[in-house]
Write a protein that binds this DNA or RNA. Structure first.
Lengths: 339, 339
DNA sequence: ATGAAAGCGCTAACAC
DNA sequence: GTGTTAGCGCTTTCAT
């Protein structure tokens, strides 16, 4: 530490400007000078000071990713994909955990921490649509989420309504008519959208909506899925299908159903949303909506980098990209017992 | 953006020095001046420029966390805990993915990216013990891992040997004598340590070590666990117990065992390592070694912050803290069929 | 208790 | 092509 451009310049017998150009790979340096500078860099062990570079250039080489929590497996997988995509573009990534809390999501926007970054990928859970206008900061923002907030920033969304609808239709096609939903929430948000898909499917099939089968869950952890399912069981409600609004809830639900001695899928067909890796290996393997994690991540990073770069071909209006989702059918909705 | 100390100073009719002291909560400012400055900060909407502060002070308020990949569920959970612990200390966290590759782990150490941070928490997988001396950088490092590398930095480790030994002893107590191991690796590393615990348990019980039951797996994903298990089955080896060197491998193994029509735990008792949340809800629920993720994370952050702060009471010699692990017994090793 | 001024290491505009 | 120079916004002596 401590070797500066000046030191290199002295060793190479050039000005610091020349060294700077070599470091930044500017083509306007003669190849012999470049070579001498490169040697000097080597011999001094020079490393550019990123803080100084940031201060001067404004570019940080860092993105911020805000997710509810990494312990929610989906966000662990999503964050991994975002970091990988950012790394390909030479960007480092800050990960912030907001706990899905609207206050913390908003706090982050004006946090000094955000100054250390060139842009933010926000996965909001607490923020509801009408708070969209509050989503603004000193850096470009891309919202990566289920829903389209009314915020004047780029959005990358998954097909929440269509995905949940396809999932529900799949259950209906299996002859299930009493389909429970786990993970509902009163506020606008992902829960509401996925619920909406459920509702639309029922409606299209002419199946009555039974509000008592729709169980809320504050957080989408496995334990909450188990708890919500226990409520269904305690209330002695009849259901032959179950839609977990995410896979973790569905896995918690399957656990609790088994404890109650119910068979999956014979007694209750279960379906989730997120297509976690875990769901390919659980027992039974879990049918799930694949939201396209890699595409979501790569797209969010791409849009954000475009905003940061700010080329002339980047439209000033907010863009909205929806990533295709796909229903992955597995044993948890297979009426025929596998094996 | 763009409001600087100068702007605030002008509004408050003081010098930038005074504003700086107020911002940094120095006590050497009269309360009336402080109040006036605070008002000016409020009215101008001033936000400190972190890049400039870093350049000047050297402190970044940022830690770097390097893990193999977040998609490995254990590292997702661990990272969440580290970020939470760092956040409590007001530090932001960069997350880097090394893919468990020794080259990338070493590259990171000399990466300019590290300059944007005050310290590094490294979870090495590829680095082996004899590369320990290469682990040095311009910032303090804490190694958070299974093993104790021969590196002159603080270590926070889990009880890999003791944990795997306890797990194996548990299987032995159930009367299992042919215990397969999945996830072995030829190189020194976590795999070797956990394998060592397995070996010690067999030895102490006077049970012969059968090398053909020890199956390697390059990466510790569920799919690799399934593949390794399929190898055991293909080779028609007899085994009545299975130790997954992590939970993901064990879940993959259980999946493959089920496909083969084997019952868990009756035919094969399965045990894992990591105690993922997933393991409390799988079928059967998975017995696992709980390495103490929260304690690992909190301790690593604490040691690192001490090094960064560099108080007089911080010993200059590298420290080594081992976090207690605990065997969580569940249905996958319950000989009596639950339910 | 407060002000003035000197840089931290770098980039970029401007000369040559 | 290369050198000179002026800051980026802040912290921190040194005066007052």
């Amino acid at each position: 530490m401590g070797v500066t451009l000046h030191d290199v310049a002295r060793v190479a017998a050039v000005s610091i400007k020349t060294v700077s150009m070599v470091v930044n790979e500017s083509p306007r340096v003669s190849s012999q000078t470049r070579l001498r500078v490169l040697e000097a860099i080597e011999s001094t062990g020079y490393r550019p000071n990123m803080a100084a570079r940031s201060l001067r250039s404004g570019r940080k080489g860092v993105l911020c990713l805000a997710v509810p929590e990494l312990t929610l497996t989906f966000f662990g997988e999503l964050s991994g994909a975002v970091i990988k995509a950012a790394d390909r573009a030479g960007m480092a990534v800050f990960v912030e955990q907001t706990a899905g809390d609207a206050r913390r999501e908003l706090e982050l926007l004006s946090s000094p921490r955000l100054q250390l970054t060139d842009g933010l990928i926000l996965c909001p859970l607490g923020l509801t649509t009408h708070q969209g206008h509050e989503v603004q900061a000193n850096v470009p923002i891309v919202i990566l989420a289920d829903e389209h907030l009314a915020a004047p920033v780029d959005h990358v969304t998954m097909q929440s309504v269509a995905g949940a609808r396809a999932a529900t239709e799949h259950l209906l096609k299996l002859g299930r008519r009493n389909i429970a939903v786990i993970g509902a929430a009163p506020e606008l948000g992902p829960a509401r959208l996925r619920e909406e898909g459920y509702r639309l499917a029922l409606e299209a099939a002419g199946v009555a909506y039974q509000s008592e089968l729709v169980i809320p869950a504050q957080h989408w952890h496995r334990q909450n899925g188990a708890d919500a399912t226990q409520k269904l069981l305690d209330r002695q409600l009849h259901f032959d299908g179950l839609l977990g609004l995410n896979d973790s809830l569905a896995h918690g639900a399957m656990h609790q159903l088994r404890l109650a001695g119910l068979r999956i899928p014979e007694d209750v067909a279960v379906i989730g949303f997120d297509n976690l890796d875990e769901s390919r290996f659980s027992y039974p393997t879990l049918t799930s909506v694949d939201p396209g994690v890699d595409a979501l991540a790569a797209t969010a990073v791409r849009l954000l980098l475009q905003r940061i770069g700010g080329g002339p071909d980047v439209p000033s209006l907010p863009r909205h990209v929806e990533i295709d989702s796909r229903l992955m059918k597995r044993d948890s909705t297979n009426v025929l017992v596998s094996r």
